[in-house]
Design a protein around this nucleic acid. Structure first.
Lengths: 351, 351
DNA sequence: TTGTAAGCGTTATCAT
DNA sequence: ATGATAACGCTTACAA
């Protein structure tokens, strides 16, 4: 900002037109349909565009085209800043992908918890966004129906559990991911494979658990006693994990519904002087920084792909009930030392 | 989206004008300078505004006012999705505060690491943002100088280390925070207070360490041997912490430059059957979900305040060299069981 | 291939 | 207190 009091004036389409000795329409064509411009003119104009650093004003373009070129994303306290949150990574991916076709992501926070759609209403009414990316979808979520009723485009990261006919979503296949984890652990030689999940009732949690049930049944390893539940907090997770670890014993393995729960299990192992992998197999979900830091095998959500497909759904202005919609992507199992029975990870010992 | 193929047409200022039998200028006045409108007209127009759900189009307003009403925020891989990252929380706070005066935050990612200012250039050139919020400032950061040279408003979360005359920043006072932590530990009765920090050379790390040096000197507890360094990764942090814990012994305490480093120390304690707090005091920095999960005392960064002040700096279109600028906010020490010598936290024991 | 005209929705200025 | 006019910068349709 140095000394001048107002920001530098930026070149407009007229400046370029004047400099290149053409009409402003021609400049517009150079930018938007270069193939309709004679090569010589094209180059002359492009040179001036570069020289002047011209970029079309988004405001003017938006006004004319009656679209914002932006998608709203609610930053819910549920999804951000919590243990094992992955939404920050999703935001990064979404932002990067949106930029490819010149769109933007506009984050916003809910203002009134009583009226969850108010912020959505304001943003479309003022044409700041063309539509929304939903996250943290839940049963009884009022947003999809409201958006549908108001004819507002949207796509969700997470299944829309209420209405199977709405297919404007992309999600990660938790069940098949957990299944893969169980098979991986079995292949590594772990014989008793338990599951630490969230209390029944959450769609995501129930889905993940079903993968464990399916895989252990398939392998003839099913045992309902090797299951425990805990909310997403360290203390209860530790207690639940402790019980499971007792039941499974050395040589057993534990699949956790989240990295946060796995932290509880890891803590118990650490306190008992047990090494993840060597003494007890451990695989978790989400592959957050925690899993990476603790070197835990984890199911990595393909967030870049999710972002890509979410934007695709938004881009194709087909109905939210497109029967081809509803995409389930498999997570990728990242194998680390915690599921390696020959675990060779060393830890500092007392002097 | 149901069946119709285009989104619903939103009411414009003309619709309201027609419905309320006034000119569109009067509607504009009702919205922007209600005091200049006769009470009866005011009410009539406001009723129509509500009835039609009218909101001024941002694109039109932006075009007319030649400002975007938005601030750009680069999502750097450095700041997001890493262990102990707090930028996601900062983004939430920034977004919420910006909304108060109708502004938005537009996140973006760098496209070319070789040309770090390219994305900035594009965003201002197309008038998507009026300026920027900088994070992850570092020595030799090319952005402040570039923004200054191009007369683009900005404010940084984090000191601008290169040029003390640039004061468009807000930061958290790491040194005084650590100092407070040391005093707190001393007051709790811990006698030997060590420090686990990052290798010398990072301005943030050096700043934090200086707080430890200052406080321990002041208290007559200085001992250069009670210091160790490690990069922000679990394995090296554990090794460094192990050495320190040996040197400090029971009844000592450890201040860590970050929650990530503290995780390493916590792990060592766990493996040795020691309880944070009761056996060894532990205080860390950032108060991320990890500190909360492990019940570690931690220095909480006042991100809401930082966001508030950053927007204030951007709002007042004073120069970036305003001598009144450069605000250092104290972090708040959140005391948990890890700095309580009478530590009463129970952990699940083996059956 | 290039240029002309109109309009997107708003607000600042000036007149009534 | 209210309204007419012009302008912000761009694109779409149409005319040359």
């Amino acid at each position: 900002m140095t000394t001048s009091s107002s920001p530098a004036r930026r070149a407009t389409i007229v400046d370029v037109a004047r400099a290149a000795q053409v009409s402003r329409q021609t400049v517009s064509n150079v930018v938007n349909s270069p193939e309709r411009v004679a090569p010589s003119t094209l180059e002359r104009v492009q040179t001036e565009i570069r020289r002047l650093g011209f970029q079309p004003s988004r405001a003017a373009r938006n006004l004319k085209q009656e679209r914002a070129g932006a998608w709203g994303l609610e930053l819910s306290p549920l999804g951000f800043g919590r243990l094992g949150a992955i939404l920050d990574t999703f935001l990064v991916e979404l932002t990067a992908r949106a930029a490819v076709d010149g769109s933007h992501v506009v984050p916003f926070t809910a203002t009134d918890p009583e009226a969850p759609t108010d912020s959505y209403e304001r943003l479309v009414a003022s044409r700041v966004v063309d539509g929304f990316v939903l996250t943290d979808t839940r049963r009884g979520d009022p947003r999809p129906a409201w958006l549908d009723a108001h004819d507002i485009p949207y796509a969700a990261f997470g299944r829309l559990w209420d209405d199977p006919s709405i297919t404007a979503w992309v999600d990660v296949d938790g069940a098949s991911g957990i299944e893969a984890a169980v098979h991986h652990l079995a292949a590594q030689g772990y014989e008793r494979i338990g599951y630490l999940g969230w209390p029944e009732g959450s769609p995501v949690g129930d889905d993940r658990r079903s993968g464990w049930v399916r895989a252990t049944t398939e392998l003839g390893l099913a045992n309902p006693e090797w299951q425990a539940v805990s909310p997403q907090a360290l203390e209860p997770a530790s207690w639940a994990a402790a019980g499971l670890i007792d039941a499974l014993g050395r040589g057993g393995a534990l699949v956790c519904a989240s990295d946060g729960l796995a932290l509880g299990a890891w803590r118990v192992l650490a306190e008992r002087g047990l090494t993840p992998g060597a003494d007890l197999g451990l695989v978790c979900f989400d592959d957050t920084d925690i899993a990476q830091a603790l070197d835990l095998s984890s199911l990595h959500q393909p967030l870049a792909q999710v972002a890509d497909r979410v934007l695709h759904v938004l881009g194709t202005r087909s109905a939210s009930r497109d029967p081809a919609g509803g995409l389930l992507l498999p997570p990728e199992l990242v194998v680390r030392s915690s599921s390696n029975p020959a675990g060779d990870r060393t830890t500092p010992k007392e002097k």
